[in-house]
């Protein structure tokens, strides 16, 4: 394992499998009467959130607390950042307080990478701009592996699984992290989106691209719907929400075109009626609630693997 978790693309297949296998064991503890483990007692984890987030922050907080770490939540609103403090000064303040790990979400791509150069603690990227959101990709891979039985006993990659990612790929760090991790784990990825919502360099990515959702559905084991991120859209990317929904939204009729074993995923928060119909989101094929529960297990695994062992100093192994 690296010292930090900045990007899913940095993980080796062995690292990724170690995280998923560890999460598998930790998930089995979530139905115990006492869910807390003493492993990170005395360690401090800072949640440094420059962007609004409920589920990711709560998920990291729950994960750290289940491992007995102390958690400090720092959100940019109403803090010294609102008074004009720079990221570097904020980082040095956290360092002085003895943060062992900093979980950072920032609207600028690359902020976690910069942060890693300034502090001694471990940096975990909880989403940076349009770059990456590695723990989301890990929890998605974990969910796919559990549901499709690729690792019923908690082993193995996702070799041969066909994953279709639909929607606003351009603005989506979830999509970037997922494409990277799914490739590492051996799954095949197809992107479906209006041409305006695909990055210019998409030809260089190791995935297929299609503009026709209906043609791809019958060949998908997993369909991952992305949120239409209106807050990041600075131009008109499609004529109207209704037209987007008609061509790229997943409704009951489209769900029926999927193979019987296929699952429907969404990283949340959902726009019901835009990219996903309510009846699809609430169907047994949807893993949306499961993804939230799995998020805690995966983040526990990441925190344990980064913080639980010895500091990697001295000679490299």
């Amino acid at each position: 394992m690296n010292r930090h978790l900045i990007a899913a693309a940095d993980l080796s297949r062995d690292d990724a499998l170690l995280i998923l296998d560890t999460a598998e064991e930790l998930a089995r503890m979530s139905d115990r009467p006492i869910k807390k483990l003493p492993t990170l007692r005395g360690r401090t984890v800072v949640n440094l959130f420059f962007e609004d987030s409920t589920r990711t922050r709560i998920s990291f907080e729950a994960a750290a607390k289940r491992l007995s770490a102390d958690v400090i939540n720092f959100s940019a609103k109403g803090s010294s950042v609102a008074k004009g403090e720079s990221l570097k000064d904020t980082a040095l303040t956290l360092e002085a307080m003895g943060a062992d790990a900093v979980v950072i979400r920032h609207d600028a791509s690359g902020a976690p990478h910069r942060l890693a150069g300034w502090i001694r603690g471990h940096v975990i990227n909880a989403g940076d701009g349009m770059h990456e959101h590695p723990t989301q990709a890990l929890l998605d891979a974990f969910t796919i592996r559990r549901r499709l039985g690729g690792g019923r006993s908690g082993a193995g990659g996702l070799d041969g699984v066909r994953v279709t990612i639909v929607g606003d790929v351009l603005h989506s760090r979830v999509a970037r992290s997922n494409i990277a991790l799914l490739n590492i784990l051996g799954a095949g990825v197809t992107l479906v989106a209006p041409p305006t919502l695909l990055p210019i360099a998409v030809d260089g990515w190791s995935c297929e691209v299609s503009y026709d959702l209906d043609a791809v559905l019958p060949k998908s084991d997993v369909i991952m719907m992305l949120r239409v991120q209106r807050e990041r859209m600075t131009a008109a990317y499609f004529p109207s929400v209704r037209e987007y929904s008609r061509r790229y939204g997943l409704d009951a009729g489209r769900m029926a075109m999927l193979p019987e074993h296929a699952i429907v995923m969404h990283p949340g928060p959902m726009n019901r009626g835009v990219e996903i119909a309510a009846e699809v989101a609430d169907s047994p094929r949807s893993t949306i609630v499961e993804q939230v529960a799995n998020g805690v297990s995966v983040r526990m695994a990441v925190l344990y693997l980064l913080l639980g062992g010895a500091e990697l100093t001295g000679e490299p192994r």
Binding site: T22, E25, L37, Y304, G308, G309, A310
Partner: peptide
């Protein structure tokens, strides 16, 4: 594994099953 007192002496290790 999660209850050991020597976790900080070595890199984090894989978990076994309960």
């Amino acid at each position: 594994t999660m209850y050991r007192d020597d976790l900080r002496l070595r890199p984090a290790r894989a978990l076994g099953r309960t």
